[in-house]
């Protein structure tokens, strides 16, 4: 057998497995960008990206959930059409919605830490529902805090003005996504890494 390749440093099998899932979840996050579901009593249709940010933390845990979202941001930064409206480019990562985008990896990491209590993953279906809900609500607050805060700074808006534009129309949708994320993990149909 060929032995001259003795210095090849193979990526460990478990790492490859987790990495492949992180990369394809990042792809899914980009692929749902154009899907918008209308909801009653709200001017803003819901998009599903935050749902997959939740699922990244719940199913991939704090480490690989965060990696997954960072891959998504990197893919968008180099121009793949993965951001809302199928846009891409580095500019989006400092633009009006940059606060939301940069909050995603932190939110996935936070959910992972709260639900899994570390990098050894637990089956999220076995974790108590209130804990999952608390984790998702905390993450949602983080996402809107960073999203609205950055928008207010960037566009020189008053905080309440930024909240009116960047948060209020979306609250009904967020409640719905939290419910969907809980239903998905409790179905037990998707195993963790």
């Amino acid at each position: 057998m060929a032995t001259e390749q003795g210095d090849v440093d193979l990526v460990d099998g478990d790492v490859v497995h987790a990495f492949a899932r992180a990369a394809l979840l990042a792809t899914l996050l980009g692929a749902v960008a154009p899907i918008a579901i209308p909801i009653p009593f709200s001017p803003a249709p819901i998009t599903l990206q935050v749902l997959f940010v939740f699922l990244a933390g719940l199913l991939l845990g704090p480490l690989w959930g965060t990696v997954s979202i960072l891959l998504y941001l990197a893919a968008g930064a180099i121009g793949l059409p993965v951001f809302a409206g199928m846009a891409g480019g580095l500019g989006v990562l400092v633009g009006d919605s940059a606060g939301y985008l940069w909050s995603y990896p932190l939110a996935a990491g936070l959910i992972g830490l709260l639900v899994h209590r570390g990098t050894d993953l637990r089956d999220p279906a076995e974790v108590s529902t209130p804990l999952v809900v608390v984790a998702l609500v905390t993450a949602t607050v983080l996402i809107y805090g960073m999203g609205v805060g950055y928008m207010a700074w960037l566009l020189e808006l008053e905080l309440w003005e930024a909240i009116t534009v960047g948060a209020l129309p979306f609250i009904p949708g967020e409640v719905l996504k939290i419910a969907a994320a809980v239903a998905i993990v409790e179905s037990g149909r998707i195993d963790t890494v």
Partner: peptide, 14 residues
């Protein structure tokens, strides 16, 4: 003649 476990890279190239 070499155990796969002793030389995984060799096995994956061969």
């Amino acid at each position: 003649g070499t155990s796969v476990e002793d030389d995984v890279i060799g096995a994956r190239t061969s």
